[in-house]
């Protein structure tokens, strides 16, 4: 799994550069590359549905973010840093990583999942319905109420986008 380590380190470096670079457009595109790396990581972790979804969603999000930044003339950021906040945040994150190390030691080791709930799903996979793809089977059959709630959240967000971004309310300002 050395490729996964390399991919994760690339993602970390890419996100740090994307947060620190002064040009907003190149920073948006760097976040796009981080998302594509995540998609490749999903393929390595044997999740092809997620890889496809992540790729499509990433392209859409980069387009939306470019729409938000490209026509503005404030592409370059020139604000000075406050070093007090910076040092406090770095110390807090070091403490966080320290505790995360403790947590990771108590997790089941990588490559051997527990799979309490999934055993039932895998056992009854082909008998109850004739669906071949287990991910869509779980999301649309066993956990349909979960998906239903997520769809409510999705449509709420879409209504919010339409209400805030529509043209007539922009003219009133």
């Amino acid at each position: 799994m050395i490729e996964l380590y390399i991919l994760l380190i690339l993602m970390i470096i890419g996100s740090i550069i994307a947060l620190e670079v002064r040009d907003l457009l190149s920073s948006v595109i760097l976040v796009g590359t981080v998302g594509v790396c995540l998609s490749i990581g999903f393929i390595m972790l044997k999740a092809p549905d997620l890889a496809m979804t992540q790729l499509i969603v990433q392209i859409l999000l980069v387009l939306i973010l470019i729409r938000a930044t490209i026509s503005k003339d404030v592409r370059f950021i020139n604000s000075k840093k406050e070093f007090g906040i910076f040092i406090i945040v770095i110390i807090g994150l070091a403490v966080f990583i320290n505790f995360a190390d403790e947590v990771v030691n108590n997790l089941p080791i990588f490559g051997k999942p527990i799979m309490w709930v999934s055993q039932t799903y895998l056992k009854n996979a082909l008998n109850s319905t004739d669906v071949v793809n287990l991910v869509s089977k779980i999301s649309l059959d066993y956990r349909i109420f979960d998906t239903f709630g997520a769809m409510i959240a999705l449509f709420t967000a879409v209504i919010g986008v339409l209400a805030i971004g529509r043209q007539r309310s922009q003219e009133k300002d």
Binding site: A47, L61, I138, A153
Partner: peptide
């Protein structure tokens, strides 16, 4: 591999994209 986290993350990606928009 375990299909349950994949299902949950699949929904989370889509709803998260709507939130970012």
């Amino acid at each position: 591999v375990d299909p349950l986290p994949q299902t949950l993350v699949l929904i989370s990606i889509i709803v998260g994209a709507a939130g970012i928009a």
